[in-house]
């Protein structure tokens, strides 16, 4: 599988105190561990992104633990208060230990 590719929507600018909606997507099969290989009949082992974290200037704002029931190419949207200018960092952690990340800048003025 090609390296998972994230896509994130965060406003570039905001007023102080504004509550921002953040939308995230990432390519991933989210192999549930419930499917069988059609040819061999063997169970396909689980391989999912099990953790999503959004931090702002190094401090965790929001996170989610995902189980195999989360759909392929997982979507997560949530909110964050604009307090100061800085960097959002989004990280997705795979069952195999890989971490995929993306950053977005916010200017508060």
């Amino acid at each position: 599988m090609a390296k998972p590719k994230p896509r994130v929507k965060v406003p570039k600018t905001a007023a102080k105190g504004e509550v921002l909606e953040i939308k995230t997507l990432i390519t991933h099969k989210m192999e549930s561990g419930q499917r069988k290989d059609k040819k061999t009949g063997e169970k396909i082992p689980q391989k999912i992104i099990n953790k999503f974290v959004c931090a702002f200037n190094g401090k965790e704002v929001f996170s989610a633990d995902w189980h195999p029931a989360i759909s392929a190419n997982p979507f997560m949207s949530f909110y964050a208060v604009a307090t100061e200018s800085g960097t959002f960092e989004f990280t997705w952690t795979d069952d195999d230990g890989s971490v995929y990340s993306k950053t977005a800048q916010l200017t508060v003025g």
């Binding site: 590719k5 896509r7 939308k23 997507l25 979507f75 949207s77």
Partner: peptide
């Protein structure tokens, strides 16, 4: 309706 909810946009990005 929303390009940031539509997972197919991940393919367009690629």
């Amino acid at each position: 309706d929303d390009d940031f909810e539509n997972p197919a946009m991940l393919w367009v990005d690629t």
